[in-house]
Amino acid sequence: MTSIRGRLWRTLPLFAAAALVACAVAPLVGSTHLDLLKALDPSIPFARNTDAQILFVARLPRTLAAALVGSALATAGVVFQGLLRNPLATPFTLGVSAGASLGAMLAITFGWTLAFAGLSPVPLASFVGSLGAVGIVYALAQARHRGLSTSVLLLAGVTMNAFFSALILFVQYFANFAEGYRTIRWLMGDLDVSSYEPLLAALPLLLAAFVAFAWLPRQLNVLSLGSESAEARGIDVDRAQRLAFFSASLATGAAVSVAGPIGFIGIVVPHMVRLVVGADHRVVLPASAFFGAAFLVACDVVARTALAPIELPVGVVTAVTGGPFFLWLLVRRR
């Protein structure tokens, strides 16, 4: 039995290194060959340096987007799982991603320009959408006191996904043809961002979510014993649950506003991390943040190169790998 301090020091640097390596290597891989020395050569003007353009305009923002989105979705998954005491809960399976998508779709399609407190409308609408979906999940969990059973959780998720998908289709009806193609790709989960703007727009929400996450792991650990036992150990369960739901919605909203509802990150990453580090949320949460980044960056490299020069939406890659993984978990859990 090693102490928590020892485990943090032994594992987190490894996960951080994995994330860094993935982010450093991914921009160099792609259908077009990239000469790194040329790209970084300051003597060539940027306008004539195609290698620099590919690196800084096409690949780097995309890699950073993948890292941030992967990190956000993986940690949101950890928080939802801890909160609902159910390892199958994720932003995607709960329908929270779909709620966020609806919000973002509304903002994109109707070109909402109103900005609130300097934040751009798409991430905000996306956050409001995810918050709405989370509100429904929260109400369901409250009504059942002991958290959601797996069957209720899955049914609720299927229902919410169907419900929000119907509304999304309805909104799409109002979009013109070009917008329509763009939104369909986006709805598949697409990291084709090619500018830093959506990233910068989502960053404030994401940072707020990560700051809130810092308070959660210890409480999520004790909440695993059940809310009654957690309360008896001195936790304000209602407040902890509200903070967790709110911050996980923030992270999901921010991630979806950048890249659409990318599925299965929130389940594949936390489970793989738990296999390595155990159940303690103080290790699982930060490790999932790093590994989520590395995982989605890697998936995006596959999406860009597998059928090159065709670029797949990265959501297709995560679904193809994550779907069977989810079913395997479901079967294994009896």
Binding site: S224, A279, D280
Partner: peptide, 9 residues
């Protein structure tokens, strides 16, 4: 428990 904590944890 939903997760595999050790007895010590």
């Amino acid at each position: 428990l939903a997760f595999d904590y050790s007895v010590m944890e």
